[in-house]
Design a protein around this nucleic acid. Structure first.
Lengths: 162, 162
DNA sequence: CTTGACTAGTTATCTTATAACATATTCCTT
DNA sequence: AAGGAATATGTTATAAGATAACTAGTCAAG
């Protein structure tokens, strides 16, 4: 599913994209014995509606409208579950969350954030991660987690802006 | 000054380290015609006291104690100035700020954050930035800014933890 | 010595995130 | 099927981080 991150910025059949990601996530949850409860499932569906990051309170509003709790922990806990198990990512630069486009696959995501349309893509980060470890190695630092995020312009938003 | 980021995690003469960074920053400000006013200078000195990131409110408390304003914008504006002109960096993962160890030199910083002691080092990021651009290129994304941050253990905190 | 740009201060408010506790659900064990 | 541990959901309250909008002081150029 979108191994090279091209989908997010290209026009595509998003209904299929979303459904595929959802099905994939469900299969992974099933396989790992994780409880994809109604709030958690719904939170993931909400994130999957677009290739953009959503703030926790945005997700919370949506959940509350649909009969779930309306207090912050409701959203934060669902999102925490999704992030912890690899169904979603936290985008630190935006204080926001986005559905993962490769659930189940080990990967270091590189987030590309379009400053014009707020679109978000996940580029492959293996090479970046390697370079980072090589940069940290000489300092004797042991890397455990990393966040790699870039802000710029997606292909569509570069037009008329050259 | 600390071109390879080794200083932060190694024991060193920090008074000289701090004074050197401050002198360097002043020279750069002078050269560029920037106004390193008392609040701004003091904010930078506070950041330079340790190789750790400080929250805006931590800096604000210190500034207030010393007779500067005690409202958030006082700290945020000073920090914004420092970041904008390359005297400090914002560490998104920590919602915090840290003095730059290479003021005046163009560089992409890679932040190494020790989860045990909160130490912070700035590793060289040229190779990482190149890898990132190569990862973003095929998607047609034009990178403008990037944040590259790693969490892990510094050399000292790895001892007795292997 | 006044004008315009910039700086520093204020009040007020907004956004993001977590702590602590009560209730309900699930699921394993017997 | 009942008991009990673990997990999940909900609440109230508050902490932590950030910005908008306005007022007043500073300073250098004309």
């Amino acid at each position: 599913m979108d191994p090279d991150g091209t989908l997010a910025f290209a026009s595509h059949d998003h209904a299929a994209c979303r459904d595929g990601a959802m099905a994939h996530a469900e299969a992974v949850a099933e396989a790992k014995g994780l409880r994809l409860t109604p709030v958690r499932r719904r939170a993931l569906e909400i994130l999957l509606e677009s290739h953009q990051a959503l703030g926790a309170y945005d997700v919370l509003d949506r959940l509350a409208e649909e009969g779930f709790g309306r207090q912050p922990p409701v959203a934060y806990r669902a999102l925490e579950f999704l992030v912890e198990h690899g169904f979603a990512h936290r985008i630190r630069r935006l204080n926001a969350f986005a559905a993962c486009m490769h659930p189940g696959e080990a990967h270091v995501p590189v987030f590309l954030i379009c400053s014009a349309c707020n679109g978000l893509a996940e580029a492959p980060g293996a090479a970046v991660a390697t370079a980072l470890r090589q940069s940290a190695g000489p300092l004797g630092f042991r890397v455990e987690r990393m966040s790699i995020e870039a802000v710029g312009l997606c292909p569509a938003c570069q037009e008329g802006d050259e």
